[in-house]
Amino acid sequence: MTAVPATASSTATVVCAYDRLTPELGVAALVGGEQVAIFRLADGSVHAVQNLDPFSGASVMSRGITGSRGDVPTIASPIYKQVFSLLDGTCLVTMDKSPKDGQAPDLVVYPVTLDNGQVIIDLAGSE
């Protein structure tokens, strides 16, 4: 969770209530026309990455399996099983495949803020 004040940007969007998220199960959200995959982990932290899976071209990352490699929390693509860091989006396991044309192998990560029990995503703060 990045400590950005909820009012820092006009591009910040309230997506849903924190309680709507089930631990370790992702959801997808539409934020300003972008699809975002949001995960609440067992430790209570919330992470958001692009929903588009760069290796299949399908918008499915929210339906992947969460886990860890070492200390890094991860998300695995449900289609060809590539594994990505939820901290910085790096592709950790490529399964010997290349991303689709025009796609970078790593995921875009979006800052998440919790404010008054609401989950807020800020597209402008993506990295």
């Binding site: 997506v15 849903c16 709507r20 199960l25 959801v27 997808a28 934020v31 699809q35 399908a58 918008s59």
Partner: peptide, 16 residues
């Protein structure tokens, strides 16, 4: 609840 397209737009289909 798990069977929704978007948590903030449950009636909208994946536009891609």
């Amino acid at each position: 609840q798990q069977f929704t397209s978007f948590v903030n737009a449950p009636d909208q289909a994946d536009p891609t």
